[in-house]
Amino acid sequence: MIPATFDYVRPGSLDEACQALASDEDAKALAGGQSLLPLLRLRLAYPSTLVDLGRLPELTGVHDRGDHVFIGAMTTHDEVMRSSLVNSACPLVALTTATVADPAVRHRGTFGGSLAHADPAADLPAVVLALDGVLVARSAEGEREIPAAEFFVDYLESALRPGEILLGARIPKLGDGWGYHYEKFHRTAQAWPIVGVAAAVRRSNGSIQEARIGLTNMGPTPLRARAVESALQGAELGDQVRQACEQAAEGTSPSGDLHAQPDYRRHLARVLTHRAIRTAAGSP
């Protein structure tokens, strides 16, 4: 990697880190570097300073907070997918994280970096959105909470203000009776998703009580498939579910790229949503 020149600091405390970011508007936080370094390599980003968040214990680890789990921003994908707490209390996060990239990337890339980067093609934003996660940020001015629905603003743009550090996210525990699935469609095992569908489904007596669906890469931000969610309320497994999932592309605005044109992405959203719901509901 041959980036342009930049300064590098590795603060030992959160205050120092906030300070470093606040004092220089071209400074950037550095987490696992798995998205930032490629941008530097291609000289698509020219930060003046990289503020390495790697020595801030407040940002790492997974914590049980009663009705929710707090996942620290600097927790690596590998730690998240192996955490027994995440696996038991918010399994959708664990099983989605296991589909991210490859082991090497998962050992460096972080949960918070994935959210802060706000790439609509990344897998975790749709999951956090579907689960109504709450992101917690901190700056020199103090801490604030941002609901996932307000966090993802546009392509590669989050609600984080300059100088703000993402501390992590609160993931509500959904409780019993829920099933989960992340249906990721990609051409090679290590490739980014062309479309992804995160589904959480509460089911009883052959019908669906409640469903939450997050769509990856179906627009400039992750999206909820609200139309499907409401059509699924009380839907019986089988034709009713199938019909409900036909609305998966409603309100989406997917882009076209080398891997898929928008109409194909819309089609995939419908097929994959149906598969995600069926699997989450445990109905083959």
Binding site: R187, T188, A189, W192, L258
Partner: peptide, 23 residues
């Protein structure tokens, strides 16, 4: 892939897909 202006669009391995053993 080249576009109509002759720009190569597949300049990284995210765009130029190679299979790995997993595929």
């Amino acid at each position: 892939v080249y576009d109509a202006e002759g720009n190569l669009l597949t300049t990284t391995m995210a765009d130029y897909l190679l299979p790995s053993a997993a595929d």
